[in-house]
Amino acid sequence: QEEEKEIKRLAKKFNASEEEARRAWKKAGGDPETAEKILKKKG
């Protein structure tokens, strides 16, 4: 599933848990760029 792959990639890229990545993904409405910004800010 595309979403799961994206979440795993985000978690790995930002050294975050999949739970954090999933939360960022949901907050971003499934937009990878926005999710990255959220995780970057958090990191």
Rank of each mutant, 00 (worst) to 15 (best):
N15F: 08
A16Q: 07
K13M: 14
G29R: 09
E36K: 05
N15M: 08
E20C: 12
K12V: 10
K8S: 08
A28V: 01
K8R: 11
K27E: 15
L10Y: 01
E3R: 07
R9T: 05
K5E: 14
D31P: 00
K42Q: 13
S17N: 05
W25I: 11
R9G: 04
E33D: 11
E33H: 09
A21D: 00
A16S: 09
A11H: 02
E18N: 05
K27F: 08
I38Q: 02
K27C: 15
T34G: 10
R9V: 05
K27Q: 15
I38S: 02
N15I: 03
Q1G: 13
K12L: 12
K26M: 14
E19M: 07
E4F: 06
E36A: 11
K37N: 13
K40L: 12
E6S: 08
K42C: 14
I7R: 01
E19I: 06
N15H: 13
A11P: 00
F14S: 02
E33L: 13
K41E: 15
L10A: 01
R23L: 14
I38K: 02
E6F: 11
K37L: 11
K26D: 15
R23F: 09
R9Q: 06
E2V: 09
I7L: 04
Q1T: 12
N15R: 08
R22Q: 05
K41V: 10
E3T: 10
A16P: 00
K13S: 05
R22T: 06
E33Y: 11
K26W: 09
S17G: 05
E6Q: 12
E6Y: 10
E18W: 11
I7W: 05
R23K: 12
K8T: 08
E19W: 07
A16R: 08
A11C: 13
S17D: 06
E4Y: 09
K12A: 12
R22G: 03
E18V: 12
E19L: 06
R23S: 09
S17E: 03
T34E: 13
K42M: 15
D31V: 08
K5D: 14
K37P: 01
K26Y: 11
K5P: 05
K41N: 14
A16L: 14
K5W: 12
T34V: 15
I7H: 02
K8D: 06
P32A: 12
A35P: 00
W25E: 03
K41M: 15
G29Q: 11
I38M: 06
E3A: 11
G29Y: 08
L10P: 01
E18F: 13
K41I: 12
R23C: 15
T34N: 07
A28C: 04
A24M: 02
I7V: 07
A11Y: 02
E6K: 05
S17K: 04
G30D: 02
K37F: 06
D31I: 10
A21Q: 00
K5M: 15
L39R: 01
E33V: 11
A21E: 00
A21Y: 01
A28H: 01
L10T: 01
A21V: 14
A21L: 02
W25T: 04
R23G: 07
K41W: 11
N15G: 13
E18L: 15
A28Q: 00
E19S: 07
K5Q: 12
G29I: 04
A21P: 00
N15V: 04
K27I: 13
E2I: 10
R9K: 09
A28E: 00
L39W: 01
E3K: 06
E20Q: 07
A35V: 07
A16M: 12
G43K: 12
K40T: 11
D31T: 03
D31K: 06
K26F: 11
A11D: 01
E6L: 12
R23N: 14
A28G: 05
G30P: 01
K5T: 11
K13G: 02
G29M: 10
K5A: 13
D31Q: 05
E18Q: 07
E33R: 10
E19F: 05
K13I: 08
I7E: 01
K13F: 05
K40H: 12
K12Q: 12
K41T: 14
L10K: 00
E2K: 08
I7Q: 02
K26Q: 15
K8V: 09
S17P: 07
L39S: 00
W25Q: 04
G29S: 07
D31A: 04
A11V: 07
A21G: 02
E33N: 10
E4A: 09
K37Y: 07
K5H: 12
E20N: 04
L10M: 04
K5V: 12
E2Q: 10
A35L: 03
W25C: 07
A16G: 02
E2T: 10
P32S: 11
K12P: 01
R9Y: 06
G43T: 13
K40Q: 15
R23Y: 11
A24K: 01
W25D: 03
R22I: 05
E2R: 09
R22C: 09
E6C: 10
K12T: 08
E3Q: 09
E20L: 07
I7F: 03
E20R: 04
F14H: 08
A24T: 02
K8W: 05
R9I: 06
L10G: 00
R23V: 08
A21T: 07
K42N: 12
E20A: 09
K40C: 09
G43Q: 14
Q1H: 11
E18S: 04
G30S: 04
K42H: 12
A11F: 01
Q1P: 13
E3F: 11
E3I: 11
N15Q: 09
K13D: 06
F14A: 04
A35Y: 02
K40Y: 10
F14V: 04
A28D: 00
G30L: 02
E36I: 06
E36C: 06
A28I: 00
K8C: 10
K41A: 15
E3W: 09
E33S: 10
G43H: 14
G43W: 14
K13R: 08
K41Y: 11
N15T: 05
K5C: 11
E19Y: 06
K41L: 13
E4W: 09
K26L: 14
P32G: 05
E18M: 15
L10I: 07
